[in-house]
Structure formats: C-alpha cells, structure tokens
Amino acid sequence: MAATKSLALAGLRLLKRLAKLLNSQGVLLALLSLAVFASFRYETFLTPLNLMNIMRQNSMLAIVALGMTVVILSGGIDLSVGSLVALGGVVAAMLARQGSFAAIVGGIASTTLLGVVNGLLVSRARLQPFVVTLFTASAARGLALSITEEKSVAVSSTASGLVWLGRGFIGWVPVPVLIVALLYFAAWFMLHRSRLGLHIFAIGNNEEASRLMGVNPNQVKLAVYTFSGLLSGLAGIILAGRLGAGQPVAAFGWETDAIAASVMGGTFLAGGQGSVFPTLVGVLLLGMMYNLLNLEGTITPWWQLVLRGGFLLLVVLFQQRIVHRG
C-alpha cells in the first residue's frame, strides 16, 4: 500500500513538473502538438532522413536567431541580419579561390565589421536601432548585389573546408547542427554565468538604472551588435558552403523569421527577459511548419505564407497569454 502511494506521489510530481514546463513554454507545447499531428498524417515525417533535413536546413536560421535574441534582450533590434547573411556568403564565395581560410575569415570579418558599425551608431551616436539596422540592411544587400553584378558566385573547389562547413558530417551528425549546439550552449553560459550576460539583461530591463549601477551600456550595445554581425557572417558562409555558391539574394526575410523565433520563445521585444534555448525551439517550430507544408504538397507557396503567418500569430498570442498569467 505504501509503495503504491509513493509511486502515485512520484507520478503526480512528474506530471506537475511537466505541466509547469509546458505552461512556461507555449512554443514547446506547439512544437510537440505539431509533431504528434505530423507523425499521424505523414508517414515520412518521423524518418531519420526527414528529421535530419529539418535540422540541417534550419541551422543557419538558428544561428541568426541566436544573435537576434541577444540583441533583443539588450533592448535593441537588428533588421540587417538577412542582408549580412547574403553579404557574408558572397564575400566567402569570392575569396574561395584563395582557400578555405581566407573565405571563412573574409566572410565573417565583413559582417562583423558592419555589426561594429551598427553598435557604434546605436551606442555612440544614440540613433534608434530600427533606423540604423534598416540602413545597414539596405547597404549590405546593395553591396552584395553590386560586387556580384546580381549573379550567384560559385564556390571554388579549392575551398573544401568551406564546403565541409555546409555539407560535412562528424560521425552521423551534420557539421552545421553541431555548430548550432555549441553556439547555443556557449551563449547560454555567457548570458547566465558571466558579467556580460548580467549587463545585457540589466540594460534591457532599465538602461538608466543599469548605468547608475556602474554598467556601461555603450560597451554592452557594441558587443551585442558585433556578436549579431559575426553570427550572421557565420550563417552566410555555412549557407554558401551548403549551396555551393554565394547568392546576393539569399536570406531574404530572415530577420522576420529570427524575430518570430525569439518572440515565440518568450523573449520580450522590450528587452530584459528571455533565453536562448526557447529561441531554438521557435526555430524548430518554423522549420517544422515549412516541412509539413511541403509534405502536404497541395498548398501553393503563396497560401503557405498565409497559413504560416496565421499559425505564428496564434502561437505568439498563446505565448503572451501564458506570460501574462505567469
């Protein structure tokens, strides 16, 4: 009798913990619900090949969304990430003839520099992040189109390392997926176990109060926009390696997807509250939605956009309701 009672209490505690987890993360509940639905409707959904494709195809967006989340936590926004992905991929492809090292360093350096420009204009010139990053997005996209003459740039066969970043495997795990895992764990540690992370949350909650506490908001803003630019360049070179070319029109609209993933993961657009792993769940939810619409096969691309937008709105509203209830 006592053993049965103990087992029942243990099961009840487990259910309470599960309920608490689901209540705190509406996006996780949406992801699990969608996965259950898809597993019954589509025979090929749960195959290892399909699940691995979802992770590989969305690894670049996951990297961009990570940088976006850190920027939003500081109270800012970065609308330039999509254009920086395209520019980083184009620069890497153009430098591929000089070898993988030059391509990788050049692609990341170009976008990191623009991230520094964003940070300086936001922190030193005190311009609104929306305006600054919108300007940078336009400039970076125009630069990518200009230097390529609006054409794709094939990645040279000499840059095998660049191609490996986009298409390679370590064991049975794709290299981009491993990169995403390492980056998210490192970012989580930085946000929750370092002084810089504490300062990011502080200025996101109340910049003036953080200044009175001895935090230098200018340095923090410069750091987060530089970090976002660096990650955009990394995503760009991985995308170029995966596609075998740098495309100046690549990553169009990725900034909205990155913001959507962050918000669905519970990151407040006002800053100061959120975390990185829920953002990753949001990215997987977006990727799963695309995958299911493709498996359906009867929905036109235009209606896919309509359905996707409506579903995202429902998830965000559900997430907001849970946050307010909390």
Rank of each mutant, 00 (worst) to 15 (best):
I108W: 05
R126S: 01
I108E: 05
G119P: 00
F135Q: 12
I104T: 06
A125V: 13
V116E: 08
S110A: 15
G119C: 01
T136S: 07
F135A: 14
T111N: 00
V117T: 13
A109T: 14
I104S: 05
G106F: 02
G115I: 01
V132C: 08
N118T: 07
T112R: 07
L120G: 07
A102I: 03
S123P: 04
V105F: 13
V105R: 03
A125P: 02
L134A: 04
S110T: 15
P129D: 13
R126G: 02
V105P: 01
L134E: 00
L120D: 05
S123C: 06
L120M: 12
L113S: 13
S123F: 00
I108S: 07
F135C: 15
F130C: 07
L134Q: 04
T112C: 14
L121K: 04
T133G: 02
G119T: 00
I108V: 15
V117N: 03
L113W: 06
L113K: 03
T112S: 13
G119L: 11
A103Q: 09
A125C: 10
V131E: 01
T133F: 05
V132A: 06
A109V: 15
V105G: 10
T133H: 00
G106I: 12
G119R: 05
S100F: 10
L121F: 14
A125E: 10
L113M: 13
T112M: 15
P129N: 08
Q128V: 15
R126M: 05
Q128M: 12
Q128R: 12
T136Q: 00
Q128F: 11
I104Y: 07
A125F: 12
F135H: 07
L120W: 06
G99Q: 08
R126W: 03
V131C: 07
N118G: 00
R124G: 10
T133V: 05
F101Y: 11
V105C: 08
L134F: 02
F101I: 15
V116G: 05
L134H: 01
A102P: 00
L134Y: 02
L127F: 11
L121C: 12
L114K: 04
L121Q: 10
G106V: 11
G99E: 11
N118S: 09
I108T: 09
F101R: 09
I108H: 06
T112L: 15
V117Q: 05
V105N: 10
G107T: 08
T111Y: 05
L127N: 08
L127M: 14
A125W: 10
I108F: 08
G99L: 10
R124F: 15
G99Y: 04
A109L: 15
S110I: 13
L114Q: 04
L127H: 04
F135D: 08
F101K: 09
L114T: 00
T136A: 03
T136E: 05
V122Q: 04
F135V: 15
L134P: 01
R126Y: 00
L121M: 14
L120C: 06
A125I: 10
A102L: 13
V117H: 03
A125Y: 08
S110L: 11
T111D: 01
